[in-house]
Write a protein that binds this DNA or RNA. Sequence first.
DNA 1: GCGTTCGCTTGATCCAAGTCAACCACGATT
DNA 2: AATCGTGGTTGACTTGGATCAAGCGAACGC
Lengths: 246, 246
Amino acid sequence: MPQHSTSGEISLSVIKTACSNCNLRELCLPFGLNIEELERLDDLVSTRRRIKRGDHLYRAGEAFDAIYAIRSGFFKTDVLLEDGRDQVTGFQMAGELLGLDGISTEHHTCNAIALEDSEICAIPFSRLESLSREIHTLQHHFHKVMSREIVRDHGVMMLLGTMRAEERLAAFLLNLSQRFTARGFSHAEFYLRMTRDEIGSYLGLKLETVSRAFSRFQEEGHIAVQQKHIRILNVNGLKALMNHRS
Amino acid sequence: MPQHSTSGEISLSVIKTACSNCNLRELCLPFGLNIEELERLDDLVSTRRRIKRGDHLYRAGEAFDAIYAIRSGFFKTDVLLEDGRDQVTGFQMAGELLGLDGISTEHHTCNAIALEDSEICAIPFSRLESLSREIHTLQHHFHKVMSREIVRDHGVMMLLGTMRAEERLAAFLLNLSQRFTARGFSHAEFYLRMTRDEIGSYLGLKLETVSRAFSRFQEEGHIAVQQKHIRILNVNGLKALMNHRS
DNA sequence: GCGTTCGCTTGATCCAAGTCAACCACGATT
DNA sequence: AATCGTGGTTGACTTGGATCAAGCGAACGC
């Protein structure tokens, strides 16, 4: 793992990025490619960038010309309404793509902010399109990734539209747990990278409600919470909470 | 306009469908293509199908192999949870695409149901992928359409996560109005194709709440409602309702 | 080491929307 | 014309989560 930048700035590095030896390749865009294809993708994904905690990867309104793969770290995306209200639309971790929303208007439609010091790979979109005209597998996988994003959003709509507070939080924790597991981390123990307020914004709840739900889950023995440190003690308990109409 | 099928069944017709003389082509997939490219798309979009009001175009769980363009009519998509709760994830009208969610898992993840007698064009997905490897413009436009779907979903998340009942309904009406306008219909007068219950499901509200909000809008002179017939009397009033933190 | 700040927790109160229930309007059926 | 069913409206009441407010603990700057 490379060291973090010592300067306080976003740093552009010319380190040779290589999908071919990235351990996230099976989670990320290169999924399913053979060696020769991978090397062609390497040429495309040439810039890696460090984003410090709290900095923007991009902002709503900026011109879109690349999508970003998260190499390490953790992001949130959010949308701001004219009247000041905002909503977190997602949390993204290593191996996931950012910026897909920008394709439609050629401008980013949300902000992407690092929740911890992170590293991303920039993928110039027009070059991705031309490469995917040549590599069938890449094209298809990219379509799957976009479609998966749509399905994920439907899940969030379901959550916001039909679930009560505790169900939402249970669903959220189970989803995080499952994504950490896919990345080789513990499914039962992790640190939240976001605040209660950010969780609340994502789940359509106020931070106090999130906090109370955490406390309740702890009282009932489903989890152990200590600030941002979460241990899941009873997965099935959480699953049951999620499915039962009160 | 073709006549409705006289049989009670979904009918498969071999009418020569042609994007090239479809008046929705500028709203739909063919956007931006030249004549020669349009003809190649015509070959691909060969099957047109009629779906009667209340019938499914596809169901969650079915194998995915095509996306669908709505030639005429009106659809809703919904997702069903194991515990019986369901949520309408969208309403689609002529020129819009259905089925994009199925790409990710190769199975449809929601149900698509006609809210009035409708006609769709089936677009075999693997053939669309190969054609878009050859036609740059088609590829790019398809990516834009998928991305637009993601942006739309973020809008719904915003609505469900941060807006109160009347704001949601105002946003919904303005969105419908805008889409009808884009199709050459009146922006101020239209018939709702869906029930109060379906609107409520989409907006994360109960049907009674939707009904009360309609009544309130009417009392305040923003709209005139008579069952499913809506006239918008004061667009700015609705817009103001949407943006103001109470 | 100490004060300040930020994020989190907890309690008391309030209110928007949900729930339950009655009733109405319009179409379809006979 | 009478009946039935579905969808819509409206009222009375309840409630889950928001709001307001106080206090606490960990992290950070000086």
